[in-house]
Structures are given as structure tokens and as C-alpha cells.
Design a protein around this nucleic acid. Structure first.
Lengths: 223, 223
DNA sequence: GTAATTTTTAACCCCGTGTTAACTGTCAGC
DNA sequence: GCTGACAGTTAACACGGGGTTAAAAATTAC
């Protein structure tokens, strides 16, 4: 019924949790480090994220922060050790929705998962770059408060660009983002970029979409 | 900044909480019994309700239940004594959103209040979008006070849309909501959407149901 | 069992969108 | 200045998603 992701490096604990949750009819994927966890949570649609604080390769708070910055609003349940109470507060500011102190009661875990799964995270799912705002929940894009009309592909392109902001996105990445592993014969990407620019940049003074020759494209607010 | 209501008969505890919350810039009204608490919470717009379980005149669970039945979806934080763990589960089923075991840490209380205030409760009995109102108790939908006649499937569709409001719902989600994992051969979803529109939008000036191309459908009151 | 309602299927149309390809412009290097 | 690579621009066309309609099938009500 529910589908959650547990990011936890203590394998014993992880197995216990997974077994118990399966009894409660909750499917539970597992990642044992922060980087893997981040990747999995981006690729799949989970109802809730169970996130350990101390993790190899990338700690829990960073995972949380990255996800929020990229516009994901999965409810996140933090698992903290008892001596990290001060971290709790930080967690809530970073975008965590709830927490449990280890060692926790498994029944309690289930109750909290159910409660979180019922509602969206309180974190607004919005990507922003200067005066350009993309609301992923209502699927609306606006610049200077004014709604923009985007075709589906233009939307996809912009979403990738905004998630990556302020980094450069290669043309390859954009192509695979739209067409997967079957890109069209001719490079229609540039046509789409043109349409996107006409919608996003043309009506305004400043251009946000910049081409980085022989690398790709990037959103920038300066220059 | 925040405005909460504490319903608690232990006056010492109440005062401690109120004082502490004021330091955290949280305004806290107080009622010392269930009946008063219910009345206050109906009259004012609180961000969160802090609700003791054992109360004179009307116990906490009943207060919670009554509120939900009347369509109030204030987030409710239950305060339970340690020996009432079993009540926790009941609480979540009755419409509670979170709980704390007495004696609780005041910092923890603040954190949870902030977390709850960010989101609506998942327990609404009445869904509303502009002048469109769905009463889950009496199973009736009305717009501009006038009853609408919906077929079972149309009802299901509308319910999903209203629960998600103002977010976009993908066609996939709508399909699984109706047919589970066995969607019909042809896409009869659009026919149902057509019927739903005829019932909900056609008789009125403004359209509430909008299609977001290649994403899905959404309820909107603007434009 | 029949009538009424609801759901499914199928066929149709239309407009928005994506694709393609040809053209223009710009810059680098010879 | 010529040429070739690359990015931007434009228009023609085909496709398909979504809206609409009607009729068959299934379900429910009487």
C-alpha cells in the first residue's frame, strides 16, 4: 500500500525495520549511504523518506536540503540518536517533517509513517531562479508574477535547467531527459530551446537562459 | 506569529506551556475543559490545537471527532499520559495528526507545533474549492448552493481532484484511483472527464476543471 | 423481466505540438 | 575574404492527445 525509502547505514537496524514494515503492508526500499539514497529518492516516487542523520558519503541533513532545493516535497522522517536533540531543530528548518529518537518503537514508526503519508510535506515545491518561479504542484511557471504558457517539452527543458541551476546542463543531458535513449534524427533540441526562450526570455528585459558554447545551456541571473 | 489553542485542565501545566510559547513568539489561548475548547476552536482560526486526552465535560478524542465531522481540518497535537499508548493509535484514527507523551520537553513541543502549522490536517470531512463543496458525510456535492447529480465514477474523480486541490493530478493517478491496476482497454477516462465537466462546469459561468496538457487535470478557481 | 442508469467501446474531429529541413547569422582559422 | 562548423530562426507538415458524440454492453433499480 505505502512505499517508503529507508536510508540507513546500520544494516541490522535496516533489516529489522524492513521486515517489520512489510508485515504492516508497507513496502520499504533501502539505501545504505547518502548518495545512493538521494539518487533513489529522485528516481522513484516514495510516500515517505526515512532518513538517518549520520550517514556515509553524505549526511542526512544534506540529503534533505538537496532534495528540497531541487523541488522535491516528499515527507521526510528523520531518525536521530538521543544526543543530537539540537540537531532536531536544524532538521526542521532544513525541511524535515518529523523525527524519531533512536532507539524507537516500531509501532510508533508505523503510526508516523501513516500520518506523514496522508499529507504532503509542508515544504512548498517551488523552483526559483531570479524572478522566474516554477511551481511543480500546480504546474505553473511565472516570471515577474506573470504566468507563462509553456508547451510540454518546453516545460521539461525548463524543469531540468531549473533543477540544475546554476550549473550548466549539457545538450546530451537535455536530450536524454526528453527522449530517453531514443533521440530524434535531426537535432530538434535547438528548436525547442528557441521556443523556450521565446516564452521565458523574449517578453522580458533580462535573459535568463544562456548558452555555453560547446558545453550546453544554463540559467543565470547575472549578466 | 503562530496562534494556537491549548485545551488542558491542569492549570499549572497550562501556565508553563503558555509562558514558554510566548517566549517563542507563539500566541496561546487556553481552555480548561472540552466543551469550552470545542467552542473556542470553532470560533477562532487557530494554526494548531493542543489537546489533552483527559478533560472534564468532554474528553479530547470526542472534541477531535466533533471537529472533524464538522469539516474543520486544524492540525491537532494530542497530549497523552504515558500509560495511554494504545490510545495513540485510536487518536490517529480519530483524526489526530501528532501526539506527545507527558511529561514532554517544551522544545519538542515548539518544534512539533511549527511542523504541524505548516500543513493542513489530512482529516477533512468536507472538501471545498471555490464555490464547489463536497460533503463526505452526506455524500453530496453542491456548487453555488445547488446540488449536483454525479455518477459513481464522476464522484470518485472529483473526490481525487478535490483532495489534491490545487495540485495537478496525473491521468495515471486518476486511472488507478478508479480501476486499480486494471485499467480498461480504451481510455474511457476522457469520457468520464467529459461527463464530470458536464455536471460540474457546464451549468455555470466559471470552469473549475482544467486540463494541464501532458500532465493531467487540476481544479482551479482563478482565470 | 423490464426499464433506467452507468460504463465501456469505438469513431470522429480539431488544434496544439513536435519534427523536419532549409535558411540565416556568426565566428575561427586558414 | 572564403569556408566550414555551430547556434539561432523560420515555416511546412504530420501526428497525436484530448474533446465530443453515439451506440453497445453492463450494471442497477424497479
Amino acid at each position: 500500500m505505502f512505499h517508503v525509502l529507508l536510508i540507513e547505514d546500520d544494516l541490522d537496524l535496516a533489516e529489522t525495520v524492513i521486515d517489520y514494515l512489510s508485515l504492516e503492508n508497507i513496502e520499504c526500499d533501502h539505501a545504505s549511504n547518502g548518495v545512493m539514497g538521494l539518487q533513489l529518492s529522485q528516481e522513484n516516487e516514495y510516500d515517505v523518506l526515512l532518513l538517518d542523520l549520520n550517514l556515509p558519503r553524505m549526511d542526512g541533513l544534506t540529503v534533505c536540503e538537496k532534495l528540497r532545493k531541487q523541488g522535491y516535497d516528499i515527507p521526510i522522517l528523520m531518525l536521530t540518536a538521543r544526543d543530537q536533540i539540537s540537531d532536531k531543530i536544524t532538521g526542521f528548518n532544513t525541511g524535515t517533517d518529523d523525527y524519531l529518537v533512536k532507539p524507537f518503537d516500531l509501532d510508533e514508526l508505523v503510526v508516523r509513517i501513516r500520518a506523514l503519508a496522508r499529507r504532503r510535506s509542508g515544504q512548498v515545491q517551488r523552483l526559483q531562479c531570479d524572478d522566474l518561479i516554477m511551481d511543480l504542484q500546480t504546474k505553473t511557471v511565472s516570471r515577474q508574477g506573470q504566468l507563462l504558457k509553456l508547451s510540454p517539452t518546453s516545460w521539461q527543458l525548463l524543469e531540468v535547467l531549473m533543477r540544475a541551476y546554476p550549473e550548466v546542463v549539457t545538450k546530451q543531458k537535455l536530450e536524454t531527459a526528453i527522449w530517453g535513449d531514443m533521440p530524434p534524427d535531426s537535432d530538434s533540441l535547438k528548436v525547442h530551446m528557441f521556443h523556450l526562450r521565446k516564452a521565458v526570455d523574449a517578453p522580458f528585459d533580462k535573459s535568463l537562459i544562456h548558452t555555453i558554447p560547446s558545453h550546453g545551456f544554463a540559467l543565470r541571473n547575472e549578466t
